[in-house]
Nucleic acid binder design. Structure first.
Lengths: 251, 251
DNA sequence: TGCTCTTTTTGCTGTAAATCAAACCAGCCT
DNA sequence: AGGCTGGTTTGATTTACAGCAAAAAGAGCA
């Protein structure tokens, strides 16, 4: 499968030869994930509570809305989608998560997860049992602080998304998503320009509050205007500056 | 001023006779705010680090985007609006905060606030210096847990808002806001039906991704259909079930 | 290789909300 | 009172996107 090959090229190498990798200290995502700014002995203590499970396949759920909250998760390889379903069955994709990113903060409040989490392709995650993480956070001040930071960043991110949904037109929403993905790939030392979208048009549209037709039409238009090039899920960003401009044009 | 009289009627009495009230243990908002599920000695320790300042007047800023992050805040009386401004100057109202609610979690991640906070009417807040709160959280496990819970609930709330902005039509958005306010008033043992909106049509529209004209028209229509009654900022919810239905109708 | 099923693209038409514009209203100041 | 200001309502028109439909392109499988 093409996507796993891409993973192997993406800086997540330490994780791929065994899938159950040995430790956080060996992981080349540690600069992005939880152990950031922790010293070696503390990383080892964190490492001991982390559970590394078999990889998920596309469509596998990590947990579902209503499941009791036990753990948070760091993405090790692949890509993950989170979505919530309201009482009437309306679905909303709430985020896409790439290697090095941490998810699952919903559900601490109530004890039950408020959203569902599904793999978009073959993916692996590190599971961090929350009770043990809380204990450890009491002992390692930098870990507690880092947890607050991660949740704070999630909140800021969600606010940015509220602005996108509330104020931007279709082009702006698409451009915002593409640039966000680009930045996150670049952070892992991957190309900021050429990428393979991990999600379907359906998922993009749901996330951005657009229909698949509008997503498709908008991508086609941007292609025609030579701002990007589109071939199915393969995207090349050809004019970052123009994309930036589109991000800020109002609806 | 009418709004301060309303405050005095709203269950925040313990705070109003002196504005600088003595302690958390005396505050009748303690069931909503931080000290929930803490025992008396721990509440007193928390109480000691809390700073109670002079009340804010309508339009006063608590902090502004870019200010260095120092504290989080609990609303004691009145009402507060948070908003972010992106690089191009597009504004997005990201939330309204009522007595007993905690705000300011943005900015832990970067050390600088990502949004601005302004009082919608005469309001008072408890300021909780974050460094000292972190120290205390290391010593009081339930406090640490409660902090995680508060932030988690903020995240779930924001996700719900993403769904509202992404999937609901104008009526659904308005209905969602009205019911949210109603629930939050009811939690403080105030009327779930009759309320005075603390925010302008402008703020409602900005928050909900609608123009003021659409907000006004939608409220008028709901009034005409006898679902609510509107007189300026005075609102009476007359048909909760219908509002619930509107919440779930798609765009 | 051909067949089925799903996803994506493209065209055409309708509509909810934006936009433009003007009237209305409630405070507030002189 | 009377005029001024900012917020709100209402009306007429435009438009970006939704909704429907059908073609095109992949993806999976015998």
């Amino acid at each position: 499968m093409a996507s796993t090959i891409i993973i192997a090229n993406t800086g997540a190498n330490a994780c791929t030869h065994g899938f159950i990798k040995a430790s956080c200290s060996d992981c080349n995502l540690k600069g992005l994930c939880l152990p950031i700014a922790m010293d070696i002995p503390d990383i080892d203590r964190l490492d001991k509570i982390i559970q590394r499970s078999r990889p998920l396949h596309a469509g596998d759920h990590l947990y579902r809305s209503g499941d009791s909250f036990r753990s948070i998760y760091a993405v090790r390889s692949g890509s993950i989608k989170t979505y919530m379903v309201d009482e009437e069955g309306i679905e909303q994709v709430t985020g896409f998560f790439l290697p090095g990113e941490v998810l699952g903060f919903d559900g601490i409040g109530t004890g039950n997860h408020g959203c569902s989490v599904v793999a978009l392709e073959t993916s692996s995650v590190c599971e961090i049992p929350f009770e043990r993480l809380e204990e450890l956070s009491l002992q390692i001040p930098t870990l507690q602080h880092h947890m607050f930071q991660l949740m704070s960043k999630q909140i800021e991110n969600d606010h940015q998304m509220m602005l996108t949904l509330s104020k931007k037109n279709a082009e702006g929403r698409i451009a915002t998503l593409l640039l966000s993905l680009s930045r996150r790939y670049a952070r892992r030392n991957l190309s900021a320009n050429a990428m393979r979208l991990p999600m379907s048009r359906m998922d993009m549209g749901n996330f951005l509050g657009l229909t698949i037709e509008t997503v498709s039409r908008t991508l086609s238009r941007l292609h025609k205007e030579d701002v990007i090039s589109v071939d199915g899920r393969e995207i090349v960003l050809k004019n970052h500056q123009r994309l930036d401009e589109l991000c800020h044009q109002l609806q």
